[in-house]
């Protein structure tokens, strides 16, 4: 099986000369089709920069990113980013439905009516039936992020890059959205790469957790999460394998932080 996404010795630095600030160095990873991979790391390690490089929104300084075997230079078709800042990512002058249709502009083989039907179908899949005519700013934060996720999927996406998508929603909504994301990923055959600073979320959602080191960051450990599916907010979080993986990730991040502070 060929990987859907690979990063090979990717490096990214800002500035030049003495002002050169390396963010990523020698980062290699691969994501297989159908997988749910979480990326965690100490805060400020450059997770968002990495995601931008993977999405083709930022050119890496070294190495290369490939999506379905093709080298990524611009955002490729079939890859959607769900940004943390949903209130800015959704265009406020478009209704929820029009935002989703905006995401479908590169979709081929569908006429206007078919696109509209597909958009309505995905809107109802994220639980927003009846909110197609609302503007994003007329609905709650959690609902806005669901519109953004729906838009990502509607763009004939195969790979969702999720940049801390749930960081700005409240705790209750967050748990519901985690389950919704897992459900959507299975239902619409989405491979997912989730960037998060929440270790429990990373373990709960993923088949595999990649732990990033401090800046300049690279993958320092890969942890397989062997937990039964579908995941359950209570049972999964009490499962020994969950606790074990969570412990391993947290201990690793803590040791990195101590080393950074000591240095």
């Amino acid at each position: 099986m060929t990987s859907i996404l690979t990063a090979d010795a990717v490096g990214k630095a800002y500035g030049t000369g003495s002002n050169r600030l390396p963010i990523i160095k020698g980062l290699t990873l691969s994501v297989e089709p159908g997988e749910f991979v979480s990326l965690v790391g100490p805060s400020g390690c450059g997770k968002t920069t990495l995601l931008m490089c993977l999405a083709g929104l930022l050119a890496p300084s070294e190495g290369e990113v490939r999506f379905k075997g093709q080298r990524v230079t611009d955002p490729p078709i079939g890859l959607s980013v769900v940004f943390q800042d949903y209130s800015r990512s959704l265009l406020p002058w478009k209704t929820n439905l029009d935002n989703i249709l905006f995401g479908m502009r590169r979709v081929t083989g569908m006429d206007k009516a078919a696109k509209r039907d597909r958009a309505m179908e995905i809107l109802s899949a994220v639980g927003l039936t009846g909110f197609d005519g609302h503007y994003p700013w007329q609905v709650s934060g959690g609902m806005q992020q669901r519109v953004a996720i729906a838009r990502g999927i509607a763009a004939q996406s195969e790979l969702l890059l999720l940049d801390e998508p749930l960081a700005a929603v409240d705790a209750q909504t967050r748990a519901d959205m985690q389950d919704l994301l897992l459900d959507l990923a299975a239902r619409f055959n989405q491979t997912c790469l989730l960037v998060t600073h929440d270790v429990e979320e990373a373990v709960y959602m993923a088949d595999r957790v990649l732990v990033l080191g401090p800046r300049p960051t690279h993958v320092v450990r890969e942890i397989e999460v062997d937990l039964p599916k579908p995941r359950d907010q209570l049972a999964t979080r009490e499962h020994p394998a969950f606790l074990h993986a969570r412990h391993e990730v947290l201990a690793l991040i803590r040791s990195m932080r101590q080393r950074t502070v000591a240095a």
Binding site: D74, F83, R88, G103
Partner: peptide, 14 residues
Amino acid sequence: VSPVQVNTGRMFGL
């Protein structure tokens, strides 16, 4: 204009 809005446009191939 927010870079997130611009990146959203780029992501959809504008």
